[in-house]
Design a binder for these strands. Structure first.
Lengths: 365, 365
DNA sequence: CTGAAAGCGCTTACAG
DNA sequence: CTGAAAGCGCTTACAG
């Protein structure tokens, strides 16, 4: 809330009009490029606009025309590279559509999400793209979003919600990653990172479990290690994988951030990722293929998802009565070094330690 | 540009008023919490507001009151973690101030920056926070920003600009980093990464050169390696450091992203960072202290900078006639493992190779 | 080709 | 305590 008419008052259409000796209607027609304006009038008006440094007040125009030229985007945490890329894609597509982005973040708090949504909605966006905070329910969103603004859920589902949804194919992705590790000979495969509260995590776990089941492997509870989806938390949580022997020899991780954190955690324990332990990520963030070892992961194309989200939410404005749509975007496995180690599933713990030492020094044990 | 009055028309103050049998003025007073409304009236109106799912039209209110409740933020690239953290800080402070963030990105293109700024300005922000695209000139910004919207330049200066500026103390930071490496015994210290086009890079180079000069060292041209400030580009550019012997034994890098890229590039050449080569970064992004080796760097506190930026740009609204202010935020050196190797500046190339091999295997040469 | 007038959804002195 | 009226900066049939 800040006064904006400091310095001399802002220039308006009327100022231009009176300076040119025409009506503001004519100036408006010039601005909208109407052919019904005499060329000479147009010239004069355009010159005056430049001379006075007039800036168009789009809010006023939108009010009058009952249109919107903005889209609200509510995410959890901009510092997640996947989210940042997604936002960049949204930004690109909105710029092309002549729309502006209203950005807010919930920081994974349902209460803050409510406040942010309310504030953004009051600015009259044409639609809202929302990655709901963990634990969001329909009743947290419905009252504040109302019935008049199209809402697109991105990446996380809300139970029983009837809004459009766009997300990556988490189930298939995690299944592909798990099958890939199985094909390398691993049998003790962990699922590492993420929170069960998030639907994307649950879906990835589902894919992981289905691949194990198909291979006739029943996962042990301690192969499932939850942690917040950040590098730091993942590095810290690494210990849990090795609490008891036999430890897993590979892990499907919740996402690349977690995978990189796990790599750090492994190195801190003198376990070389990609050689002593196989890892797959999820998202294919830019660093994934620059890491040593390069990270096997699932490419979801967050930038393209961002663009797609804009299309969905703006398209919804035209057909309000369509039923809610679930759009599942395919993902693809990108195989790199971090998962290409071979497993030694039958080694006894002692033998394994000896073998590991010998691999590390390059001398026979 | 999208129609937003799909489904039945949006509820307005007038709808609530007529449903309650009062005037819209009264409803407005209820919304603003005026004490001049009878408690019973207030109750009725509030109930009706909830019942109809009314949502306040803040744009209309802002138009009438001639105020703004938004701030425009134009950055280059959201996928830079420093930028993402900064944006998160801006977001926090704006939320507290009851303002909304209009976000756009220039992708380092002056032309796109112009279009984005114009679009955002038309929405009437109370101020603009801008990290100018490389090569921006006053004439690229002045016409589109006009004279009525306070502009704050963040992190990069524009020659001869008279706008407020906020940035980290790049000169002092790079000088501290260089002095630290000198204190470890290094004499062949590179400056790695960044583009001379950006003022922040020039300032960091200035600090680096001044520390070298004070130590009586004249830097060789090939110690200066430019590259785009991304991990990938940095990894690729690593080769340039080792093109000729004697190679540098340490590098002050433009920022943490570049430093991490350099680490990858070094590992790819079998040079262990923090042991065979000393590195300092800039920014202290979250991974810096989680990396192996942990990265010595300069903490700039991007989140706090984001908050500070909001204060400066909103504060400017009140005192339009103050001269432009340069705010330089102090930085602090965080010493970690990546820079704690000792230099061997007098080693001949051959001897150095032998020594390096012996250090790596742990056996005498 | 141009202007007068009404109206978008609000707020705010002012009168009662 | 409440309402009528004017006005924020635009747009758009409509008349001329």
């Amino acid at each position: 809330m800040t006064e904006s008419d400091h310095r001399r008052r802002r220039i308006t259409l009327a100022d231009i009009a009176s300076a040119c000796g025409v009506s503001s209607a004519t100036v408006s027609l010039v601005l909208s490029g109407s052919p019904a304006v005499a060329a000479s009038t147009r010239k004069r008006v355009e010159a005056e606009i430049v001379r006075q440094g007039y800036v168009y007040n789009r809010s006023a125009a939108n009010l009058r025309r009952k249109i919107s030229s903005s889209v609200a985007v509510v995410i959890n945490d901009l510092s997640n590279p996947f989210v940042a890329e997604f936002a960049a894609g949204v930004d690109e597509a909105l710029a092309e559509a002549g729309c502006v982005m209203l950005l807010g973040s919930s920081g994974e708090s349902v209460e803050r999400q409510r406040a942010v949504l309310q504030s953004l909605i009051e600015h009259g966006p044409a639609g809202v793209i929302l990655t709901p905070a963990e634990g969001s329910k329909v009743s947290d969103l419905q009252p504040v979003v109302g019935l008049h603004t199209p809402l697109l859920l991105f990446n996380r589902e809300v139970p029983e919600a009837k809004w459009d949804y766009l997300g990556a194919d988490n189930v298939a992705g995690a299944r592909m990653a798990t099958e890939h590790l199985l094909a390398q000979g691993h049998t003790r495969i962990a699922f590492f990172g993420g929170h069960r509260d998030s639907s994307s995590c649950r879906q990835r776990v589902e894919g992981y479990l289905s691949a194990l089941a198909e291979a006739g492997i029943s996962p042990e509870p301690r192969w499932m290690v939850e942690c917040a989806p950040t590098r730091m938390q993942a590095a810290t949580a690494t210990a849990a994988l090795f609490a008891r022997d036999p430890a897993p020899t590979a892990a499907v991780t919740y996402n690349d951030g977690v995978a990189l954190g796990l790599m750090m955690g492994l190195r801190a324990r003198n376990i070389t990722p990609g050689r002593d332990f196989a890892i797959t990520g999820f998202d294919d963030i830019p660093e994934a293929h620059a890491q040593v070892p390069a990270l096997t992961t699932l490419a979801t194309g967050p930038r393209a998802l961002g663009r797609q989200a804009v299309g969905l939410v703006l398209g919804r404005g035209n057909k309000p009565d369509l039923p809610a749509r679930r759009t599942i975007s395919p993902v693809s496995l990108v195989t790199r070094d971090s998962s290409l180690t071979y497993a030694h599933p039958l080694e006894a713990p002692a033998g394994k330690a000896a073998k590991r030492k010998s691999r590390r020094t390059g001398e026979p044990a």
